[in-house]
């Protein structure tokens, strides 16, 4: 047990270190790249005095390391600074939108994970059959589709032609839970179609990998049904890679929402990020990037820890 605790602490420490370096990159990357932010925002017409005043307002007259430390300290207290575009507190902007994004990702995960696992197990069970080939071609194609293509096809058929679901999913806090799920079902379906393929293929591969091992041979020889062999004997040992790929795809769900949110005008973090990029609102972009990077790193960390927990052999690498 102490081994596991130590390992988790180690991974967590490494994750924190990565996070620190990432925050450094997000902050200093903006510094090192060419161009003066104040000049860029105010435009060519600005006089030297206004640029200087604006620089002072942004705190750009201080040396970079001082600003970085001040930024980090504020960040740890939950203060992300103010947006350049509308002078609002960034933490206010982030708060609601982050929850919206996580809500959408959660809905998508609830649909996609069971679907992917079932399809993967079925494909492993009926491998090399017509079903397996069909699923294989379908998933290979759905990986290749750009997200907006999937999204617009769903809108065209489910929203415009059949009118079952709304094509714009603007949710707000007043709505009931059921209504919110209903409104974000199309974006969630889009995300599902995008991530199912990867998870399903990995599940199939992980199970098929095991089928050649002697203990499966033994199970087959004593006359067990193929379905039982796969679910009872192969699946538990294939859990590590499956959990890993699921966690990676969850990370992708949170980060990959950007395009889907733009298509469906969903008020999430991705939409905010894209809007801020086109306005060149750098503090907001930095804050959004940091939140996304944090989620991504944490979920990847979770994948790491979970796959080690489900396969104790990884604890003692030779």
């Amino acid at each position: 047990m102490s081994d596991i605790g130590k390992m988790v602490a180690q991974r967590l420490g490494l994750g924190l270190l990565t996070l620190f370096v990432v925050s450094l990159i997000i902050f200093l990357g903006v510094e090192l790249l060419p161009g003066d932010i104040a000049q860029e925002i105010l435009g060519q017409a600005a006089t030297e005095e206004t640029v200087a005043a604006f620089r002072r307002e942004l705190g750009l007259n201080l040396p970079p390391h001082e600003r970085y430390i001040a930024w980090l300290v504020n960040l740890l207290q939950g203060d992300f600074g103010k947006s350049l575009a509308n002078k609002r507190e960034i933490s206010e902007l982030l708060d609601v939108r982050l929850w919206n994004t996580l809500f959408l990702a959660a809905v998508a995960a609830v649909i996609s994970v069971p679907l992917a696992l079932t399809l993967g197990i079925l494909a492993a069970l009926y491998r090399n059959s017509i079903f397996d080939r069909a699923v294989n071609i379908m998933t290979l194609s759905s990986i290749s589709f750009p997200e907006f293509f999937v999204a617009y096809i769903l809108i065209l058929f489910l929203a415009v032609n059949l009118g079952v679901f709304p094509s714009i999913s603007n949710i707000s806090e007043e709505l009931s839970f059921g209504e919110r799920v209903y409104r974000c079902i199309l974006p969630a379906l889009t995300l599902t179609l995008v991530v199912v393929a990867h998870m399903m293929r990995m599940t199939r591969a992980a199970i098929i990998n095991l089928l050649a091992s002697p203990y499966i041979e033994m199970a087959r020889l004593k006359g067990l049904k193929p379905g039982r062999i796969i679910v009872k004997h192969a699946l538990p040992n294939a859990l590590a890679p499956i959990i890993n790929v699921v966690a990676i795809n969850l990370a992708y769900l949170v980060v990959g929402v950007v395009i889907v949110e733009v298509v469906f005008v969903y008020p999430g973090l991705g939409q905010l990020l894209v809007d801020s990029v086109s306005k060149r609102d750098i503090p907001v972009v930095q804050a959004c990037s940091l939140v996304f990077a944090m989620t991504y790193i944490l979920l990847n960390l979770l994948a790491d820890v979970l796959s080690i927990l489900s396969n104790p052999r990884l604890l003692h690498p030779r």
């Binding site: 997000i26 790249l33 932010i37 950007v258 894209v274 801020s276 990029v277 972009v285 959004c288 996304f292």
Partner: peptide
């Protein structure tokens, strides 16, 4: 380090500046 940041987010960040 570069791979720890999701690439779409990273690209958006850099394109904002340059």
């Amino acid at each position: 380090i570069l791979m720890a940041i999701p690439s779409l987010i990273f690209a958006l960040l850099i394109l904002t500046v340059v």
